[in-house]
Measured scan of single mutants.
Amino acid sequence: RKEMTAACTPRRRIINLTSVLSLQEEINEQGHEVLREMLHNHSFVGCVNPQWALAQHQTKLYLLNTTKLSEELFYQILIYDFANFGVLRLSEPAPLFDLAMLALDSPESGWTEEDGPKEGLAEYIVEFLKKKAEMLADYFSLEIDEEGNLIGLPLLIDNYVPPLEGLPIFILRLATEVNWDEEKECFESLSKECAMFYSIRKQYISEESTLSGQQSEVPGSIPNSWKWTVEHIVYKALRSHILPPKHFTEDGNILQLANLPDLYKVFERC
């Protein structure tokens, strides 16, 4: 597991931080080997919608929660590849102030007048994250320049770009939802926020969305749709870069829909 690298990086740093090793061990302890084997050997059937997909393993048909699986995938990559990410360069710098204002204007932020003026909160978020810029760049390849612009994001899987519609809320939550006081809790909560931002979430995906850094293989055609990215990038990574937690067998994120021999018997009677 320590050699797990989802995106190509030129050289690998050895990380011996106790906090990170502890988080890696927790993933191992909570892992479910049968689910790992199923995901490793599954045959992708198709997307139901951005949140759900169908896959077959041996004779069984499964309904998989793409949102939760991708979130767990990105969390584990962030923990196992800690401080070893490439950088996704933004085509132009994104001012943190503008991103924070967009987030505060969104109902998702939960902002009320009692929280104070949005401009003041946005300025605080910019200054707060600028103070964390060195650590964010060093460990997470999340790059913020001296003017308070976001200029780079971590490359977690080759050819995958997170849904940038979720970027404003991500920046807001970096400042408000991460435990910045304790090292282990900081790395864990920061990785979880980043994983949620990178995950496939239906509120940020339309039929026209593209999450891939590449064009489709047909010359002159439109960019790959999110469905292509889910199948050929995300579920491909799920084959080798995730140890599913045991609770996925109990919380409805992986559901067995049918045993195909039983279905064949039904059709034979028709």
Rank of each mutant, 00 (worst) to 15 (best):
N49P: 01
L156Y: 01
R1G: 08
I144K: 01
M196H: 05
G166L: 07
G110R: 01
T66K: 00
L136H: 00
A103F: 15
N159S: 08
I200C: 12
N253H: 07
R12K: 07
E165V: 05
R36Y: 13
P163K: 07
R11E: 12
D98I: 14
T9N: 11
K265M: 12
L35D: 10
L142S: 01
R173P: 00
N149P: 01
L164K: 05
L155M: 09
I15A: 11
P244R: 08
L69F: 13
D138H: 03
F267H: 05
F248R: 11
T112N: 09
C194K: 00
Q203F: 13
E268H: 13
M196L: 13
N84C: 13
W226S: 03
L96P: 00
L153A: 01
T18M: 12
R12C: 10
H247D: 05
G166E: 11
E33R: 14
A100W: 00
I77E: 15
L243A: 10
E268Y: 14
I200N: 10
R36E: 13
Q76D: 13
L102Y: 12
N159Y: 04
E37Y: 14
E113Y: 14
E231F: 03
T18H: 12
A100Y: 00
M135E: 03
V87I: 08
E146Q: 05
H241D: 13
I27G: 15
E147C: 08
L88S: 11
M135F: 02
I79F: 04
K130H: 14
P244W: 14
C8A: 10
L23G: 15
V230G: 02
T112W: 15
N253M: 06
K246R: 11
L69N: 01
K68M: 09
S141P: 15
E33N: 11
Q30V: 10
F140A: 13
I27R: 09
P219V: 08
P50C: 04
S199I: 01
P107S: 07
E147A: 05
L174G: 00
W111N: 03
E147G: 04
Q58I: 12
L96H: 00
Y124Q: 01
N49D: 08
F170E: 00
A122R: 00
S206T: 06
K2Q: 12
Q214A: 07
Q256W: 14
F85P: 02
G220N: 09
N149T: 06
D262A: 07
H241E: 13
K60G: 12
R36Q: 13
L255G: 11
G252M: 10
P168E: 15
F97S: 02
N159D: 07
V34H: 09
A103Q: 01
E72D: 13
I205H: 07
L172K: 01
S91W: 15
I27N: 14
Q256Y: 15
V230Y: 08
G148W: 04
S225A: 10
I171P: 00
P168V: 01
L23Y: 15
C186P: 01
L90T: 02
P107I: 12
I79P: 00
K265T: 09
H241I: 13
N253R: 08
S216Q: 07
H32G: 05
D251M: 11
F187G: 01
W111V: 05
L153K: 00
F197D: 00
L63Q: 09
D251N: 06
F44R: 04
Y62D: 00
E72R: 04
D138L: 09
P50N: 12
L153R: 00
L96Y: 00
V161R: 05
S106P: 13
F140W: 11
V20E: 15
E37V: 11
F187V: 03
H232Q: 11
T176G: 03
D158V: 06
L104F: 04
W228I: 10
E92T: 08
M101E: 05
Q76A: 13
M4E: 11
E123P: 02
F44Q: 04
A83Q: 03
K192N: 07
I242R: 14
E182Q: 06
D262R: 12
L102I: 05
N159R: 05
G116A: 15
A103W: 15
S19W: 14
V218K: 04
E33D: 09
Q30Y: 12
L172E: 01
L129F: 15
V45R: 02
I144V: 04
N28Y: 14
N65K: 02
Q203K: 08
F128W: 02
P244I: 10
E268L: 13
E165C: 07
V234F: 14
K60C: 11
R13T: 10
L104Q: 01
T18P: 04
V20P: 14
E182V: 12
Q56N: 06
V266D: 15
V48Y: 13
L260I: 03
E71Y: 04
D145K: 01
I27V: 04
E71F: 03
R1V: 12
P245K: 10
Y198A: 03
I200V: 11
Q214L: 11
G120Q: 03
K184N: 06
Y80T: 04
M135Q: 02
R173N: 15
P223G: 03
A237V: 12
E182I: 08
G86E: 11
S19P: 03
G46Q: 02
S212D: 07
T176A: 04
P245E: 15
L164Y: 04
I157T: 09
E268F: 14
A100H: 00
E134G: 03
E92G: 08
E25P: 15
M38H: 11
E92A: 10
V230W: 02
K131H: 09
K236P: 10
I171V: 07
F128G: 01
C8W: 12
S19Y: 13
D138W: 04
S106A: 07
E37Q: 11
A237R: 11
E72A: 10
E123K: 01
E250P: 08
D98G: 03
L39G: 05
I222P: 10
S109T: 14
E3T: 11
Q203M: 10
L121D: 01
T66M: 15
D105C: 07
A94Q: 03
E143H: 09
F248W: 10
G252W: 01
W52C: 05
A122C: 14
R13H: 13
D145T: 03
I254M: 08
A237C: 06
R1A: 09
T67G: 08
F248C: 12
G110N: 01
Q24R: 04
Q215N: 10
L69Q: 01
V234I: 05
E165K: 03
H40G: 12
I254R: 02
Q214F: 05
E3L: 12
D181P: 03
L54H: 03
L104Y: 01
V126F: 15
T176E: 12
Y160T: 00
R173A: 15
Y62F: 04
V48M: 08
E119C: 07
N84F: 14
E113N: 12
G166N: 11
L102T: 03
A7N: 10
V87P: 03
S106L: 02
K184E: 07
R1Y: 14
W52M: 03
R11D: 14
N253Q: 05
T9I: 07
L172W: 03
C8H: 08
Q58F: 14
V218C: 10
F140D: 01
P154C: 00
L255N: 04
V126S: 03
L35W: 09
P245W: 15
S19H: 13
L96E: 00
S141E: 14
N159G: 10
G148R: 02
